[in-house]
């Protein structure tokens, strides 16, 4: 079947089987391999993309279901080679080690802060509980997201805890 939608601002049209998940369509058809495929049954969050402003698991969404919708993947966050404020905060706080979960962390946190720039540390932890990270222990990720809030119109970072805060 042919499916048409927007990815990171560009209109795309591609041929998929009905069973093709959005995650595989992005990776295989559109060569946007920033979206990572971990568990493929909706547990790990690595494949999170943003559909019309809402974070969704692209492994639990069929490509044919996003006909006419607007998708943002991790590739759509940066402006060219310049990191987005959220990405820069991840770098500053060492919020990644192996990096496998990072695309899902970034897209989830971007959707959250766009909607809720004043999200508390508890709210951030609750939302990121849907994204598994086996390296970092999450602390630097939460700090990075807290730090990035200012760029979305939220509070300036002074509430971070532990290492790396406030740099």
């Amino acid at each position: 079947m042919e499916v048409s939608f927007k990815v990171n601002g560009h209109a795309v049209k591609t041929e998929v089987e009905p069973r093709t998940t959005l995650s595989l369509c992005l990776r295989d058809n559109l060569k946007l391999t920033g979206t990572h495929v971990g568990c493929e049954h909706g547990v790990c969050g690595a494949c999170t993309v943003i559909v019309d402003g809402e974070a969704v698991r692209s492994c639990l969404t069929l490509a044919v279901q996003v006909e006419g919708r607007s998708i943002t993947t991790v590739e759509g966050l940066a402006d060219g080679d310049a990191l987005s404020p959220l990405q820069a905060a991840f770098r500053r706080h060492n919020a990644l080690q192996c990096g496998f979960c990072t695309p899902g962390m970034l897209t989830t946190a971007h959707a959250l802060l766009t909607d809720e720039p004043h999200a508390s540390a508890d709210r951030i932890r609750e939302v990121l509980s849907g994204n598994l990270c086996r390296c970092t222990g999450y602390l630097p990720i939460v700090e990075a997201v807290l730090d990035a809030r200012a760029a979305y119109g939220g509070p300036a970072s002074d509430a971070t805890t532990g290492h790396g805060a406030g740099r």
Binding site: E54, R57, L60, G130
Partner: peptide
């Protein structure tokens, strides 16, 4: 009920 991303769908 479920996680953030799942609650959206």
């Amino acid at each position: 009920v479920a996680h953030y991303q799942i609650r959206n769908r």
